[in-house]
Simulated scan of single mutants.
Amino acid sequence: MRRFFLLTPVALLLAAIVIILATEYVVARPSHRTKDVAYVPASAPDFDKERHILDVYSPKKAAPNAAGYPVVLFIHGGSWTSGSKNIYTFIGRRLAKQGVVAVLINYRLAPPVHVPEQAADCARALAWTVQNIKQYGGDPARVFVMGHSAGGGLAALLATDDALLAAHGLPQNPVRGAIMDDPAGLDMYSYLKEMKYEGDEKYKVPFGNDPAVWKQQSAIYKIKAGMPPFIFYIGGETYPSISGSSGRFRDRLKAIGQPAPYTIIPGRHHIPMVLQLYWKDNIIYQGLLKMVGA
């Protein structure tokens, strides 16, 4: 068994990105991108001009009804220490082309901040989305969250942690559903207590040394009746820690009478689980569009 994340060959990842960027213009035409919008006031004492920003991708055609298009807020992965919304422009374009307003966010990375601050950033981005998405053609009553890898764990917190949202301007949880793309961090409490993979110590950089924090930032312990629906897409060749925690999460949802669709995609490793979103007919988009009603 291996640890969470092993680096994929750099050349392979760079080649995939080059191919993606080479055809981006063709896909960009049906959508409009509003770039680098601050979701935290510049006057805030912790404002970070590089990380407290988001992009909005809107269909160029007017919505078919006055309420607006459904909205998906996407959170990138990167082991809580790296990553950027700018890598995933293709997701914003594909969603907008298919009748969804996409919000792709940055959040502060570890170090110097830890996962509680990252989760707070995601909650602030969600609050901004609910308050402002109407002017971009989105329906604030139909906001969904999506994440890959570490972003999946953060997205799960938005769907389950009502106290987190209330602390950042959302007294009612506005999330209408959560799309999990090979999510990491759903149960960091168990993972960091076991420490059974080589190199696991590095995950204490974002999560710290306090087991109480590990549990607080693990969405699996916040499952309760009345939560928004979840759908899972898991790589058949992903890391055992990801498939294991996702399976336990699914089982706990089922135990409270809220079964979640759970699709294992044969042959897929962890990084290809997000790169496959370059193709708009991908199985993940098919489930997503059905969930959001696009």
Rank of each mutant, 00 (worst) to 15 (best):
A141M: 08
K134P: 00
A178K: 03
P183E: 14
D187W: 12
V145Q: 07
V175E: 00
M180V: 07
E194S: 13
Q131A: 15
A127Q: 06
Q172Y: 00
Q118N: 02
Y191H: 14
L157I: 00
L186R: 01
H148I: 08
W128Q: 02
T129K: 05
D181N: 15
Q135A: 14
A159D: 04
G199Q: 13
S190V: 03
G147E: 06
Q172S: 15
L186M: 12
V143Y: 14
Y197Q: 11
H148M: 03
A119H: 12
Y191L: 15
N173D: 05
K202Q: 13
L165G: 13
K202H: 12
P140D: 10
T160M: 03
P174V: 09
G147C: 11
F144C: 06
Y136Q: 00
V205C: 11
D200F: 15
E194I: 13
P183F: 12
A125S: 08
P206F: 13
P183K: 07
Y189I: 07
H148C: 05
Q135R: 15
L126I: 01
N132V: 02
M195E: 15
K196N: 14
I179C: 07
Y136E: 01
L170H: 12
P183S: 09
A125E: 03
I179P: 01
V205N: 12
M188Y: 09
